[in-house]
Design a protein around this nucleic acid. Structure first.
Lengths: 157, 157
DNA sequence: ATTGAAAGAGTCTCAGT
DNA sequence: ACTGAGACTCTTTCAAT
């Protein structure tokens, strides 16, 4: 953990804006928030050094790239102490893009992105069955994403 | 849907690289893949026009911004025809950052990002209880994220 | 801390291949 | 389609406030 954070309104405004659109220029950000491009630069540098801003990611259309199936998988473990071992095995399956250790029904909860249902079935039947320590899994296939958005760190209105 | 896609190795390489790090310069991308910066520029422009590349997003450290609690919520609906109405109500809760319509146990599946457990409890007890059409919900609090990564559109090795 | 201006680096265009 | 060079824009630094 870096030095203590002390973010002001402008910092939050910059983060909020760039979470949606990281390509915006410092000049345009400055115009929007009534400061100079130099000030924006200093703020972003500060946020990067503090580790609040970790980088930028490309936002791609998975459907157009041929990834038609998104599913969530709830995993029941035989013993919760097996978490780390099973997590390492699940990491080897590249279609699993996210894995969380959770409270509640499931010991762990994953998200899978696949080309098609055939690929999903292969993961569920072939790959997951081979992993020792998994008692069973439950799968929820996403039929539609209602919305996906960012956290609100600054309220616009 | 735009005109038919015909992506080659270079396109996939660029996407793979920029999904992790969208800040990399065209010159550096060119060096990495043995083409000129101009070629990279043309490819990225093509990908943007096709809609495959939708933009770039800031990657932030939610913990450092004070968002300590991530949870997943499975929603049981009284009738699945209520999906759209309930989705609109859930959209009004800004801490719900994602909502999917799913097969399986739950009708819909959401992800919540909160400052703390108190805020999560308010959402579960106050906000969700008010929404008509929700039979009940199940919550899975993330104790730890094992990994989070991008889809593999191009295999490096 | 913020600014404005200058230097440096990156993007974008285009003629040539 | 790719390249290299020039024009243009954006980032980065810095002296002044």
């Amino acid at each position: 953990m870096a030095t203590k954070l002390n973010l002001d309104k402008l910092d939050y405004q910059i983060i909020q804006e760039m979470m949606e659109n990281a390509e915006i220029s410092y000049a345009d950000l400055g115009k929007k928030f009534f400061v100079s491009a130099g000030t924006i630069h200093v703020r972003i540098k500060k946020l990067q050094e503090a580790g609040v801003v970790k980088g930028t990611k490309l936002n791609v259309d998975l459907k157009q790239l041929g990834y038609d199936v998104i599913a969530f998988i709830g995993v029941y473990l035989e013993k919760s102490s097996l978490y780390d071992i099973v997590a390492e095995e699940l990491r080897k399956i590249p279609q699993i893009v996210r894995l969380n250790y959770t409270t509640g029904n499931y010991s762990m909860f994953g998200e899978v992105v696949c080309k098609d249902i055939t690929e999903l079935r292969q993961i569920l039947h072939d790959d997951l069955q081979k992993i020792k320590g998994i008692e069973r899994t439950e799968t929820f296939i996403s039929l539609d994403e209602s919305f996906g958005r960012n956290v609100q760190v600054y309220k616009t209105k």
